[in-house]
């Protein structure tokens, strides 16, 4: 009897330890979701996240492709940022696989240098996985001197797959949107938390 009870206690403790481990694992999962979510979006184009990186399309892909797609450009500036920010050309017509350079223009109204950073996404969301950005001002922070006017390039191409995927074959217009936010100065914001993570 006593032996059985002792065994019971051990089993009880063991169960509790396992359960605490589950709690820790689920808590860890919440934090791990920060990088995991970002990776998931980048890999799948989820939520309109375009692909980034070097050109991987084949030269022949563009040739003779029946389709053309219009890429339109949209710009937003957070009201905390005293900038003007606009696409230079409102839209371009591109052939699949063709590498295209376009420009946005930004102007700093303030009398001090200001750093901004841009978020971006592509709509329709389902087209994002076929929208590849090779070069973009949004990959880094941008600092504008007082009154400065800059032209900021974007290089991209649309994957010919867009026309083959039955889910996206009807897409004729793609919109690329940016939103510029101010980057808070170090003094105000001590650490960039998730980078530290």
């Amino acid at each position: 009897m006593l032996g059985a009870q002792a065994r019971g206690i051990n089993r009880t403790k063991l169960t509790a330890v396992i359960l605490f481990a589950v709690v820790a694992a689920m808590g860890g999962l919440a934090f791990a979701s920060v990088p995991l979510y970002r990776m998931f979006c980048q890999v799948t184009g989820f939520a309109g996240t375009p692909r980034t990186g070097a050109y991987v399309g084949t030269a022949s892909a563009g040739a003779g492709a029946a389709g053309e797609v219009t890429v339109r450009f949209d710009a937003n500036v957070n009201s905390q940022l005293p900038w003007q920010f606009q696409p230079v050309e409102r839209q371009v017509v591109v052939r699949p696989g063709e590498e295209v350079l376009i420009h946005y223009r930004a102007h700093n109204f303030a009398d001090k240098p200001i750093t901004g950073t841009a978020t971006f996404n592509v709509t329709p969301f389902k087209a994002a996985q076929y929208f590849n950005k090779i070069e973009c001002f949004c990959f880094t922070e941008q600092t504008l001197k007082p009154g400065e006017d800059v032209s900021m390039p974007v290089v991209f191409y649309v994957d010919p797959q867009l026309f083959e995927d039955p889910n996206t074959a009807e897409v004729r217009k793609i919109t690329l949107s940016y939103t510029f936010f101010p980057v808070e100065t170090q003094a105000q914001q001590p650490s960039a938390g998730e980078k530290a993570l």
Binding site: E98, E99, R105
Partner: peptide, 16 residues
């Protein structure tokens, strides 16, 4: 209307 971009609208360039 908002002021048009100061940089003259350069046509899109195809790099290929």
């Amino acid at each position: 209307a908002r002021p048009a971009p100061a940089v003259a609208a350069a046509p899109a360039q195809s790099i290929q």
